[in-house]
Amino acid sequence: MKDGQSLIEDKLNSAKYKKVLKANFLKPATLIPILLLAFIAGCAIFAPILAPTNPYDLAIVSIMDSRLAPGEVMFNGTVAWLGTDGAGRDVLSAIIYGLRTSLIVALTSAAIALTVGIVVGLIAAFYGGKIDAFLMRIVDIQLSFPAILIALVLLALLGKGIDKVIIALAIVQWALYARTVRATAIVERRKEYIEAASTLGLNNFRIIVKHLLPNSISPLIVLATLQTAHSISIEATLSFLGVGVPITEPSLGSLISNGFDFILSGAYWITFFPGIMLLATVAAINVFGDQLRTILNPRLSK
């Protein structure tokens, strides 16, 4: 029985929800990260157009340009606004291309991990019992090791390369998604619309895909956003430790690591600017994720 009070609450909530939704999108805390992320994504997508030079093109990289300070003019006449690194590559161009690598790695690994996590989580929640216990113990084992340790071991086994990093990051992340999906799906599983679907005689696959899945994934939106930021920094860490992407296709992490050798000799810019970019990206995604959580769950905003 829904009493009068809760009916009124429902009405207030729907009015409030619209208001909160609008207000949340317009306030600086949401707007700034969104704009920043749009800018970052734009840079990554249009890297070949935006970057002053192509850091992969060995023909134009000249050792003569090695370690130019920000603002100096390179051998071929372009201004290195953020300086050059030890090999004579323009740091600004390297950052723009590096952003590309970092985002591709983070997003692809997130997509793979999400898919695996959702499948495992839904199967565990739907079938329950022994299947659930088995899958969740694997998740437990996975989550009991630090992500960076697993990634290091995997990369030591797999070797270098962007694809290897993506695989490693996906393996590190799927368990978290699986557990989150399972938690929601187990609640949804017991609701009567699922029982109704099985009395209609639908097969399990259809029930899982059409009924359980759409009702279980909303908590993942926020988690996936925050997790993307996390995997960008894991990738950067791995690259910094020298097991990530190869130096010929620099990511933000390998740029930072690359410049680290020169930081004591005063060439701070090789590490500093990629570092700032990494910080900005991760922070923007995190703040956006937090705001998204507020928007999707207005009760928290009280």
Binding site: K191, E192, Y193, E195, A196, A197, T199, L200, G201, L202, K210, H211, P214, N215
Partner: peptide, 24 residues
């Protein structure tokens, strides 16, 4: 077929009424 007690949880909230009824 079965009619359930709680009308708030017996319908899939993410589907339109048309899709709910036409599913079988």
């Amino acid at each position: 077929q079965m009619i359930f007690q709680d009308p708030y949880s017996s319908l899939n909230a993410r589907m339109r009424v048309q899709d709910i009824v036409s599913e079988p």
